[in-house]
Design a protein around this nucleic acid. Structure first.
Length: 328
DNA sequence: CCGGACTCCTGGTTGC
DNA sequence: TGCAACCAGGAGTCCG
C-alpha cells in the first residue's frame, strides 16, 4: 500500500514526538512482524528498551530511526530549551561541530530501528495507554515533546520492524541501514543522481513500469504512482525503457516528482482505512487520481475510457489513446 | 539480463 | 443472509 508519499507523511508525523525521546516500554504482539529482525523478539525488546531515537530518516519506502546515545538526547533537550526561551532556531547547536562529531562517531557504529509498512502497515502516534486494533508492536516513548505511544498496526503482516546496523553510504557522506543499502536513492532525495538514473534506465530493455518499480534503480514508486506518473508523461507501461527518448525519459522522471509532490501536499492516498496518517486521518490524493483505479472512467485529458490490464499479478491502468505502445 | 510465477498474510468486498 | 471466491498500496526469490 504505502508508497513514498505515505511513508514521508508518517516520517513527518512522528518526527517531533520521537526525536530525542527515550523508549520506555516495548510490547511485541505478533512475532511475524519481526521477520526481518535477525534475532528473537526478546533481543529486539532488550536492545530497544532505554534507547534514544534520533530524527527519523527515509529512503524510498523504508523509514528508520537511528538509535542515539543519551548525550545526543541531552543536546536535543538543550536545543529545545533554546527554542522555547529565545524563540530562535536551535540549529546553531544541533549543527555545531560538537553535536555533529558526537552524532557522527555514534552513527558510524550505530544502529537504527528500521520500519517497512509493506502492503498494509501503519504507524499510529497516540497518547499513553491508547489501544488500536491489530497492533502488532507497541512502542512507548518519553521525550521533551511528552509521552507517546507508537502503535505499529499491520493487517497483512507484510510490513516489519527490525534493528539493523547503520553503514556509511557509498556516494555522499551519510548513513543507511545495511538492509536498505541496496535500495536506490529516491527522486525526492537531494543526492538523487538524475544522469545516473537516466543512463541506467536507458540500458534496460524491460518495460518502463517494471523499471520504475525496481527499487534498486529508483525507489519509492509503487503501483499507484507508477500508473499516475506514466499517465502524466503519456507513456505506455510496457514501453521498453531503452526505447524512450532522452526527453521522454526525463519527462517520466519529472512526472514521478510532480505526482509525489502533489500527493505529499494532499497527505497521501487513502482508499479506505488501510492507509491513514499517524493521527488516523485519511489522505486526499485518491481524489486526484487520473489513471489508477479509474478503469471505465473517461481519461481526464482526452475522454477515452481508462483501461485496466492484468500485469505482473497486479493491474496497470492507462489511457489507450494518450499512452500508446510505440515501436522503436 | 529478462519476464513470469510464486511466497509471505489478513480481512473487506463482491457475487452467487 | 450466508458463504466462498476474489482482491489489495510490497518485495524478495527462483526458474526457464
Amino acid at each position: 500500500m504505502p508508497e513514498l508519499p505515505e511513508v514521508e507523511v508518517v516520517r513527518l508525523g512522528i518526527a517531533r514526538a520521537v526525536t530525542g525521546a527515550t523508549v520506555t516500554t516495548i510490547e511485541v504482539f505478533e512475532p511475524r512482524s519481526l521477520r526481518r529482525h535477525p534475532a528473537p523478539p526478546e533481543d529486539f525488546v532488550a536492545r530497544l528498551t532505554g534507547a534514544v531515537f534520533a530524527a527519523p530518516e527515509r529512503r524510498g519506502k523504508f523509514l528508520w530511526l537511528p538509535l542515539g546515545p543519551p548525550v545526543l538526547h541531552e543536546m536535543q533537550e538543550r536545543a529545545d530549551a533554546v527554542r522555547e526561551t529565545s524563540g530562535k532556531t536551535p540549529s546553531a547547536l544541533t549543527e555545531s561541530p560538537a553535536f555533529r562529531s558526537v552524532e557522527a562517531s555514534h552513527r558510524t557504529t550505530g544502529e537504527a530501528l528500521v520500519v517497512h509498512l509493506g502492503m498494509s502497515g501503519q504507524v499510529l502516534l497516540r497518547g499513553p495507554a491508547v489501544q488500536d486494533a491489530r497492533t502488532r508492536i507497541r512502542i512507548d516513548v518519553a521525550g521533551a515533546a511528552g509521552e507517546y505511544r507508537l502503535n505499529f498496526v499491520d493487517q497483512r503482516i507484510f510490513g516489519s520492524m527490525a534493528i539493523d546496523d547503520l553503514q556509511a553510504t557509498g556516494d555522499v557522506p551519510g548513513w543507511v541501514p545495511s538492509s536498505v543499502s541496496h535500495i536506490a536513492r529516491d527522486p525526492l532525495d537531494a543526492h538523487f543522481d538524475d544522469r545516473l538514473f537516466l543512463s541506467r534506465l536507458a540500458s534496460k530493455r524491460t518495460g518502463v513500469k517494471r523499471a520504475l518499480l525496481d527499487q534498486t534503480l529508483i525507489s519509492g514508486i509503487g503501483n499507484i504512482y507508477a500508473d499516475e506518473a506514466l499517465w502524466m508523461a503519456r507513456v505506455h507501461y510496457d514501453q521498453p525503457a531503452s526505447t524512450l527518448s532522452r526527453q521522454k525519459a526525463r519527462a517520466v522522471l519529472a512526472a514521478v516528482r510532480e505526482v509525489f509532490a502533489k500527493a505529499l501536499i494532499e497527505g497521501g492516498t487513502s482508499f479506505d482505512t488501510q492507509y491513514v496518517n499517524v493521527n488516523g486521518e485519511s489522505g486526499y490524493f485518491a481524489h486526484s487520481l487520473n489513471a489508477y483505479g479509474q478503469h471505465g472512467k473517461p481519461c481526464p485529458r482526452c475522454g477515452t475510457p481508462i483501461v485496466r490490464e492484468s500485469w505482473m499479478n497486479r493491474n496497470s491502468h492507462f489511457c489507450p489513446r494518450c499512452q500508446r505502445l510505440r515501436s522503436p
